[in-house]
């Protein structure tokens, strides 16, 4: 399988990459790890005339703290997310999620920026970003802007990113003290995309849930933030009854397709199960 032909560029700065995007318009695409885009190009589902490799841009790399926020460069690979000790201690759900993506070879190349910008509902990081209320830092010809993840996804492969913009980093605020997050993914085999998956974050105070956010992977054309399901748990005691309620409310907003991973009704139910499991695990890890 060989892709359509293209001209290749490897800029060294964000400004150069943006200028190339602006020059070549819709005929240009960025490539980072290439592990979503190159297969699509080989299948001729994507046929850019100009391919701009961002792999040489040093400013897109690195995991930093900015005050209490995490600032993670778009080029950070899934393997780097897994290996970072500070991140594993401070925001372990990113490591946990990265470990559920594909296999070690893919994780050595696939980047966080590519995973969130791709817009494939099967990607795992977007739901985690909705759950954690992350912001995507973006640069275009007009300068920088910051887009909330919760307003970024509009349809399969349709996002708020303009054609001439590049995602430079992901900004994630620290969770409220004592709260914990979890990602539960059902897949047919190791390395598979999700049949259904749920990202949750949950906080407790005096034995009651005082903070809860839930998001879903691969259960609609976009990742879903299940706002009502999370809100419904505020003030309730953690436990099977509350988690089942959240699972039911989350199921209500899903719209999966029937495919090789199962009929739509099954995938919806599994979405509820993933929400329940993730909540139970987060509640155990959260400190009152």
């Amino acid at each position: 399988m060989i892709s359509g032909s293209f001209a290749f560029y490897r800029p060294h700065t964000i400004a150069e990459a943006v200028a190339m995007l602006a020059t070549h318009g819709d005929a240009a695409r960025l490539v980072a790890g290439g592990h979503s885009l190159i297969p699509m190009m080989k299948l001729r589902m994507a046929m850019p005339d100009h391919l701009i490799d961002v792999g040489g841009i040093a400013d897109l790399k690195g995991i930093k703290r900015d005050g209490s926020d995490w600032l993670i460069g778009a080029l950070t690979t899934q393997a780097e997310l897994i290996a970072d000790q500070a991140l594993a201690a401070g925001l372990p759900v990113l490591r946990e999620t990265a470990l559920q993506i594909a296999d070690p070879q893919v994780r050595n190349c696939g980047t966080l920026g590519g995973n969130i910008a791709n817009g494939d509902p099967g990607n795992d990081m977007p739901a985690v970003m909705l759950c954690l209320n992350a912001r995507f830092e973006v640069t275009g010809p007009g300068g920088k802007r910051s887009i909330p993840a919760r307003g970024f996804y509009h349809g399969a492969y349709v996002t708020s990113l303009a054609q001439d913009e590049i995602v430079t980093a992901v900004r994630i605020a620290a969770l409220p003290p004592g709260s914990a997050a979890a990602y539960e993914k059902l897949k047919r085999k190791v390395g598979d995309y999700a049949t259904a998956a749920a990202a949750v974050a949950l906080g407790l105070q005096d034995g009651k849930i005082n903070f809860c956010s839930i998001a879903l992977t691969n259960l609609a054309p976009t990742p879903l933030w299940a706002e009502a399901a999370g809100q419904a748990l505020i003030g309730r005691a953690p436990g099977a009854e509350s988690f089942a309620l959240a699972g039911r409310l989350a199921e209500e907003i899903t719209d999966p397709s029937s495919d090789a991973r199962g009929p739509a009704a099954y995938r919806t139910k599994m979405g509820g199960v993933m929400v329940r499991r993730a909540l139970a695990r987060a509640a155990l890890a959260a400190k009152t």
Binding site: G34, P104, Q105, N108
Partner: peptide, 13 residues
């Protein structure tokens, strides 16, 4: 130093 799938890696990169 890292294992990768060479089928998805462009030589030019």
């Amino acid at each position: 130093g890292r294992r990768v799938n060479s089928c998805l890696t462009l030589a030019v990169s």
